[in-house]
Amino acid sequence: MENRISFTLTDAEQAQINQHLNSILAILQPKAVVLDASDRMEILKMADGTLPFTEKAIGYMHSNPAFKPDFVSLEEADIDLNAYKLGKQFLTYAQQVIRVIEDICFLSGSEAYSAALVYYRNVKMQAELKQPGAKDIYEDLAKRFVKKSSKKSKE
Rank of each mutant, 00 (worst) to 15 (best):
I27W: 06
A115L: 11
L117E: 15
K88L: 08
L21I: 13
G87V: 07
E76V: 09
H62C: 09
A32G: 09
L91Q: 05
G87P: 09
F145C: 14
V146T: 05
K154E: 01
V33C: 03
N18A: 15
L44V: 14
E111K: 03
K88C: 10
V97D: 08
M41N: 14
L91W: 05
A134H: 07
A112W: 10
Q14Y: 00
A94N: 09
S149N: 10
L35F: 12
K143M: 02
M41R: 13
I17P: 01
D140P: 01
I24K: 07
S150N: 12
S153E: 12
I98K: 15
G133L: 06
K85E: 05
M61Q: 06
V33I: 13
A127H: 01
Q96W: 06
Q95F: 01
L117A: 14
L44E: 12
Y93D: 14
L74S: 06
L28N: 00
A112R: 09
Y84S: 09
I58C: 02
S153Q: 08
I137V: 14
L44S: 13
D48R: 01
F90L: 12
K88T: 10
V146Y: 02
Q126V: 02
F71P: 02
I79G: 02
K151C: 13
A83W: 00
K56P: 05
G49C: 06
E102S: 11
A142G: 04
V123N: 03
L86R: 14
N64H: 12
V97I: 09
A77V: 09
M125G: 01
A142C: 12
A115P: 08
L28G: 07
A115V: 10
S114P: 08
A127K: 05
P69K: 04
R121N: 03
D136Q: 11
Q14A: 13
K154A: 00
V146A: 03
S108Q: 04
K130F: 08
L44I: 14
S108P: 02
K135F: 05
D136S: 02
I98M: 15
N82Q: 10
A26D: 12
S38Y: 01
K31W: 04
K85G: 10
D39S: 03
I43S: 09
K68S: 08
V97P: 00
V34T: 11
I101S: 07
E13S: 12
K135P: 06
V100K: 07
D39G: 00
F90G: 02
Y120V: 07
E139Q: 14
Q89P: 03
S110F: 15
E128F: 05
N22R: 03
P65H: 04
K130E: 03
Q89N: 14
L25V: 09
S150W: 08
